[in-house]
Structure formats: structure tokens, C-alpha cells
Amino acid sequence: MSAEATSAPAAAARARSRLALSTTAPLVMLALFALLPLLAIATGQTHWLSLINRIVILGIAALSLDLILGVGGLVSFGHAAFIGLGAYTAGVMVDAGRGDLLLVVPAALLVSAVFAALTGAVSLRTKGVAFIMITLAFGQMAFFFSQALYAYGGDDGLTLPERSTVAGFPILANKVTFFYVSLGFLVAAYLLVRAVAGSRFGRALQGARDNPVRVGSFGFDVFRIRLGAYVISGMLAGLSGVLLANQAEFVSPAYMAWQRSGELIFMIIIGGLGSLWGAVLGAAAFLLLEEALSGFSEHWKLGFGVLIVLFVLFTRGGLADLARRLTGGRA
């Protein structure tokens, strides 16, 4: 057994650099996110602020999807429904004059958790393509339900009279403040998902992704583990919906169209499945590309498709893996 003797230091070095990257990459991203708005203001390009803010907000949604899809292996095709539920909760509550963030956030988390628990209890009984189709179907049900909310604009959606207050103070009306509040939520969500993924629960979830029969044979209830992850994930996506509604000061059924769910999957594939910070990077790459290409031509989605195919072909582990290789993390 001399093979280990030579490969052990290499493995240790690899582990070290992986550790280093999984710490430094999120910190570099955080620094960039924190500085970009200041740069935008300094250069007078304040319209960039709303794009960066959307990246941060959808980064939370992508991160939440990465927990169940990347870590848990559950290809949910209805994740945008949770964004929509959070957004409508915010919209309806602001419309009713009860739009304080301290009320809206718990309400949206609750609504998302209930929807996740109910739909997860059904969809998680299936696997593979059936699971994809059922999550898609539940997502579409939420979409059609929101279209039927005539009191709140039906198909046209609902314009928010104002943004949520925070403990009564209208601080979110300021774009820069709103951005930093969003960033605070992203950091909290990242730390939470990272802790969960690395916990006993997360290890069992990951084990069940690779080999559910084996994990069941240890005595774990795989269904319960997956349902737990599905609920946590849904709640975080609901939170991103609250922020999205406030950022746009508008909600509409389009938030939960199935294309939005597909885009979230793109984001985490671009970023690198299961790497968590890669999901945020993927959200950034997706929205920046969308912005750049839509400036070129109205047929930008075609070019986008081509880019994504090339991307998946040439970087199998996504941006996270590309970064790992560029920093010498993998042979």
C-alpha cells in the first residue's frame, strides 16, 4: 500500500486549495458586491444599481435551488413558484397597508414553507422525470392561480404603491439602502445554506443524492430528509420573492412562469452544481449575459442558448470548477 503515501500529500494540497477557494471566492464576491454600487454612483451609472440588485436577489433564489438540486440531486422545475409566492405575499400586504418588512418576511416564509411542505409531500414520492414533471405542474398551478387574482391585477399584475417599510421607517425607498439590505439577506442566506449543506442533515441529503437506497439502509428516512431540504429551499426562494417585488415595486404572474424556473436551473448549472457560491456567480453571469445580449438584438435568446450549450460542453463543473482549475485546485 505505497500508493497512498504518494497521493496523500497531493490529496491534502487539493483539499487545502479547495478549502481556500470556497472561503476566498465568496469573500471576493462579497467585496465586489459591496463596492460596485459605490462605483456605479461615483461614475453616475446608477441604472447599473438595479441590475446588481437583481443579481443579489436572484442569487438568493439560485442558492436555495442549489441546496435541493446541487446538494440533494432533486431537479425541481417549479422553483419560480416560491419566488412568486413571496412576491405576491409582499405585494398583497403592501397593498393592504401592512407591508412592513418585519411582517412581510415572516408571512412570506410561512406561505412558502406551507406550499413547499404540501407540494413536496406529493412530488418527493416520485423520482427522476416524474419529479421534474410534478414540480413543473405545481409551479404552473401557482402561475395560473396568480393569473386568476383579479383583485390584484390578474394577468397584468400589481403595482406596489410603495416599498415595504422596516419597523415603520421607509428606508428601503432609497436604492442604495435597499441594495445593501438585499446584500445582507444574501450573506445570511449563503451562511445558512452553507451551514446546512455541511451539517449532519446536509451529509445525509448529499448521501441520498448519490445512493438513496444505501442511506435508507442506514436507518435514515430519505423522504423526510428531502422534504426538510425542500421546505428550507422554498422558504429562501420566497424571501427572494419579497425582495424582488420591492425592488421592482411590481408583481405579476410572469414571476412564476416556468421559464423563470428553467432560468434558475441554468444559473446553478453555469455556476457549478452544489458549490453554493457558484450559484450566486451563475446568477450574476446569467443576468449580465442577458443584459449584454438583449442590447444586441431582440433575438438574444437564441444566442444565449448557443452560449449555454458551449458553456456546458466546455466547463463541466461550471464557473466554480473553472475557478478551481484556474487557481490550481485540481490537476
Binding site: 451551514a195 455541511g198 451539517s199 449532519r200 442533515f201 445525509a204 436507518g219 435514515f220 426538510g228
Partner: peptide, 19 residues
């Protein structure tokens, strides 16, 4: 460790690094 985890108290704890 995952096999051992299944029968430990708080087998599915959400916090604390499992590794």
C-alpha cells in the same frame, strides 16, 4: 460516519460541521 450518524441522537442536526 454517515452510517454511525443514523443511530446517533440528533441524527439530522442542521448546524455544526458533520465532517
Amino acid at each position: 460516519a454517515l452510517a454511525a450518524q443514523a443511530r446517533s441522537p440528533r441524527a439530522l442536526r442542521l448546524f455544526g460541521r458533520a465532517a
